[in-house]
């Protein structure tokens, strides 16, 4: 690269340094300083059973959301990939449509559906399946429902592109030499989709790990996850150091999971490319 071209990179790099790297350092450093042992704040954080519960809830919700979007996304993506070119475009746009609406609006819609006087409870009471409303809202269940709704389009989109690379004749070749449809799916189609499935899973997992609006609006104050705990520590309690500890824990988990999954993708990729 020419020197003058390198010069063009400086404004962008400077922006990243000032607005991203420095604030992150500013967030990280106070959690390690002070009179006590440098990890003391973290020991305190992990010693609290309430905090451990929040971490567990966050991870469980992220895992369950990923698994549900994966199992709902696979058949949908398969169907979309087999559509004709024009319909494929139309359906893909419809799938992405929920992403275009504001997250707050979307979650309010779920509140009116899942609430005590919501659509589901009203209906079930009217047909006399239940006599008093069930608690659906402000539970782990409602957070998962909202997250699945939020992340399903992302999962479907990454799976569709993966399905698109499949060669029809490969499946036919498998069935001619004796593979039943189930075998064709599990031994021929699914392994070829592994990269797309992993990519989609990383996006959904990390997305729901760090999501704030959905757990805040659908989970309420009792069902806290790391992101809502962080908000509480900083904005509500004004304890910025504790908030930073939460932020660091969240960041480390996210980076760790992404690294592991990326490594998995690379392994599979190499197997496919070999």
């Amino acid at each position: 690269m020419k020197r003058s071209t390198v010069l063009l990179l400086y404004p962008g790099l400077l922006l990243i340094l000032v607005l991203l790297i420095l604030p992150i350092l500013q967030m990280f450093l106070p959690t390690f300083t002070g009179d006590q042992f440098f990890l003391e704040k973290y020991f305190n954080f992990f010693r609290s059973s309430g905090n451990m519960q929040v971490i567990a809830r966050t991870l469980i919700i992220a895992v369950v959301t990923t698994l549900i979007t994966l199992s709902l996304g696979l058949p949908t993506a398969y169907w979309i990939s087999r559509l004709g070119d024009r319909w494929k475009k139309v359906v893909s746009i419809i799938v992405l449509f929920p992403i275009l609406t504001n997250a707050v609006v979307r979650n309010f819609a779920w509140i009116t559906i899942l609430g005590k006087n919501g659509v589901i409870n009203n209906f079930l009471m009217q047909v006399h399946i239940i006599d008093k409303p069930m608690t659906l809202l402000y539970t782990n269940f409602s957070i998962v429902v909202g997250s699945v709704y939020l992340f399903l389009p992302i999962m479907i989109t990454s799976l569709v592109s993966s399905f698109g690379q499949l060669n029809f004749e490969v499946e036919e070749a498998a069935s001619v030499i004796g593979a039943r449809p189930m075998i064709v799916f599990f031994k021929v189609i699914l392994p070829q989709l592994s990269v797309g499935m992993l990519t989609g899973s990383i996006l959904v997992f990390v997305g729901s790990l760090t999501a704030y609006t959905t757990p805040q609006l659908l989970g309420g104050n009792k069902n806290m996850v790391l992101a809502t705990l962080l908000q509480q520590q900083s904005i509500t309690l004004g304890d910025w150091t504790s908030a930073s500890v939460v932020a660091v824990v969240l960041t480390v988990i996210a980076v760790l999971v992404m690294t592991i999954m990326n490594y998995g993708t690379k392994l599979l990729d190499r197997r496919n490319a070999k």
Binding site: N167, V170, A173, S175, V176, I177, A179, R180, P191
Partner: peptide
């Protein structure tokens, strides 16, 4: 899958995620 025919396609249609040996044993394993 029960007709016991062999077929060769224009696009080769090999299983991309399997070795040559695995490609060949796929039908035998069924």
């Amino acid at each position: 899958y029960k007709r016991n025919f062999g077929m060769v396609f224009q696009s080769y249609a090999l299983f991309p995620h399997m070795t040559i040996f695995q490609n060949i044993t796929f039908g035998l394993k069924r």
